[in-house]
Design a protein around this nucleic acid. Structure first.
Lengths: 333, 333
DNA sequence: CTGAAAGCGCTAACAT
DNA sequence: ATGTTAGCGCTTTCAG
């Protein structure tokens, strides 16, 4: 392992000079700079980032903390974060909280102990509520996916209420009146989508039926069980909306289990576009979130904040897209 | 930020003693140990891992380097790695190489610079070939998904040849004779599956037709384009096998584009089970890889190697499962 | 059993 | 423009 001292000696300069050259600092004669770089190359020297971090208190690691690593939404976000981080010389640490605030806290603590440069976080409800008390969060932070009310952080998200309103209105526009909703529990995202759903019903003079609205853990199995209950009601819904792709899979399985046909017997729409939503026949009408852009934007905001911690906070709201397919009885492909 | 010195002072002992207590080292009087722990708790002290790393040259970070972060296979592996690592107090760094050996090398170098404890790697072809020359890999390493020939590393994988043989035989058993194959290029995995495919054909006295065998980048789009060519042949295949789920999506899209029905017009089977494979009608016959177990096993092997670098290398071959569904003309669900 | 002191590899004042 | 030096926070000899 060649160290900066080796380079300094081989180049006949001090370690300070080598350090300056490597950091592209001013006050180094071009010839010295060139010479040092040659030695660096020749010796194949690479600075020890751990030592750099300890001394200068800067790191090139950013963390992405998500509530479910297996949710396609976060997978795509994660790809974007990875791409954007890599471009700027950062590498990314990935942590999964399973929507468990204890695990989340332990994870954030670990990250702080590692002195990561910053974190992109999709926080649990509890963390949002006690945000300022979480000591581990005294580092640059960008919150994604969840609305960070009036917290003093950067935030990138979509307009959940409006998006749910749009897709619900689409269902209503196709004649569905008894629309069931299966929303993700535990996070504010699910309740905002619920909110938009209700607003759309009311705007179209449909009285929301409490028994048609369910919260479920955002996993396939819970989506399945919940939907089964919905479908076994004496007056079952004529359409179902779900708030993410994991729940969607469960709903589709339940619909099949009950031998119902989409959209003939029951219509279906969901949040999150996936390959599967396109592949199915009928293909599924969805709200597409700009997942890649969310990840990229969050990463860029984070790196800007790392570089300038005094910068004012931003809330970036990205536009979603209603993709109309055949699962709501529409002809258009 | 409270440091070890603060704890030492508050406890009236030396930093060495505090360090010993925290590391559970022997030669500390139980009463001192207890007292120190109380102060630690009271002051809410957490050791700085960067300093620990620099001083003792140990890290609690492991890295997962995959060729495609968006491939459901690696996503599931990544969840398993995350779970297993977390249980043992490690956190994981995630890097994506896009099957690009330059990016891979740069990534491995960064990880080495960060002094990570070890790496779980799905290497590019080039890295396997020049394995011993890659200086960044002088750390504990476990190779997954790709066969690491006779390299001196731990390796966890499945039997690709045998799995491809099994699923191909299944197709043949259902009367298909002109079977097209779309395999992932760039990696040894694709060619091993190709090999098993060929072996199955030969074992059943079917002469492999070179024009029916294609290599494609493992992405939906390439799967689509490649399949289109296959389907436009004068004597098109009566069945298609693909070697991963991304290609599978492309194939399915192409089949639909050509308005062919599965399994009536053409049968289909693939590697990798996904939610989508179950959801589609007909559901897709697949080789299911034990993805979660692969990730877990790799992590456990890695941590064992970190703890004992002299340990002998192991190659763990995990069993796959042929899941028979309706896409090959089979009745069974 | 415990403390003092020497670094891990680097950067950043402070000199010159 | 460059070198000297003092640490970053911790672990680990080495003494006692």
């Amino acid at each position: 392992m060649v160290k900066i001292k080796d380079v300094a000696e081989a180049a006949g300069v001090s370690t300070a000079t080598v350090s300056r050259v490597l950091a592209n600092k001013p006050h180094v004669r071009p010839e010295v700079q060139k010479h040092v770089m040659e030695i660096v190359k020749k010796l194949n020297y690479r600075p020890n980032r751990v030592a750099q971090n300890l001394r200068s208190n800067t790191s090139k690691i950013i963390a992405l903390v998500v509530s479910d690593i297996e949710n396609p939404f976060f997978q795509r976000v994660s790809r974007a974060v990875d791409d954007a981080a890599y471009e700027q010389g950062y590498i990314v640490m990935l942590c999964n909280t399973d929507e468990n605030s204890t695990k989340e806290e332990s994870c954030l603590n670990l990250l702080r102990d590692e002195n990561v440069a910053g974190v992109i976080l999709s926080p649990t409800q509890r963390t949002i509520e006690k945000f300022s008390e979480i000591s581990a969060l005294d580092m640059p932070t960008v919150i994604i996916d969840r609305h960070a009310k009036n917290l003093d952080v950067d935030n990138v998200l979509i307009d959940n209420v409006q998006s749910a309103y749009a897709i619900t209105s689409h269902l209503i526009g196709h004649g569905y009146q008894r629309i069931g909703g299966v929303f993700g529990g535990d996070s504010i995202t699910g309740s905002q989508r619920h909110e938009g759903f209700i607003q759309a019903l009311k705007a179209h003079n449909i009285k929301p039926a409490a028994e048609l609205i369910k919260y479920a853990n955002p996993r396939e199995e819970d989506g399945f069980n919940t939907t089964l209950k919905l479908l076994e009601m004496p007056d079952r819904p004529d359409a179902i909306l779900t708030s993410n792709s994991l729940l969607a899979a469960g709903v589709l399985l339940a619909i099949r289990e009950k031998k119902l046909k989409i959209p003939g017997d029951i219509a279906f729409a969901s949040f999150d576009d996936t390959t599967c939503a396109q592949l199915l026949e009928p293909a599924i009408t969805v709200i597409e979130q700009p997942t890649y852009e969310i990840g990229r934007t969050a990463t860029e905001l984070l790196i800007k904040r790392i570089q300038d911690p005094t910068r004012s906070n931003r809330e970036v709201v990205l536009k979603t897209k209603l993709i109309i397919r055949q699962s709501c009885g529409c002809q258009k492909s």
